[in-house]
């Protein structure tokens, strides 16, 4: 049994950040869900050019760091 690791999803084909956030954090208000996704994934939303471009190979965390 592997030790716990930070949960992530990978983008589905042509998935937008809105759709991913709704899928990953169901029950959250959408704006808040998008905010959280961005805060957990600054490698996508800060360092990438263009910022926020979702790639099929991406690791998109759905929770904050665990340690």
């Amino acid at each position: 049994m592997l030790s716990a690791h930070r949960r992530f999803v990978t983008p589905q084909t042509n998935e937008t950040i809105e759709a991913l956030a709704a899928r990953a954090l169901p029950g959250e208000p959408l704006d808040a869900a998008i905010d959280r996704i961005k805060s957990y994934n600054m490698h996508i939303f800060v360092m990438r050019r263009p910022a926020g471009l979702l790639l099929g190979s991406d690791v998109v965390f759905v929770e904050p760091p665990l340690q």
Partner: peptide, 16 residues
């Protein structure tokens, strides 16, 4: 520091 109290790390290049 995230709301769960855990401190994570983000690396920025010179531009960012």
């Amino acid at each position: 520091r995230y709301p769960n109290g855990v401190v994570g790390v983000v690396l920025l290049d010179a531009e960012a």
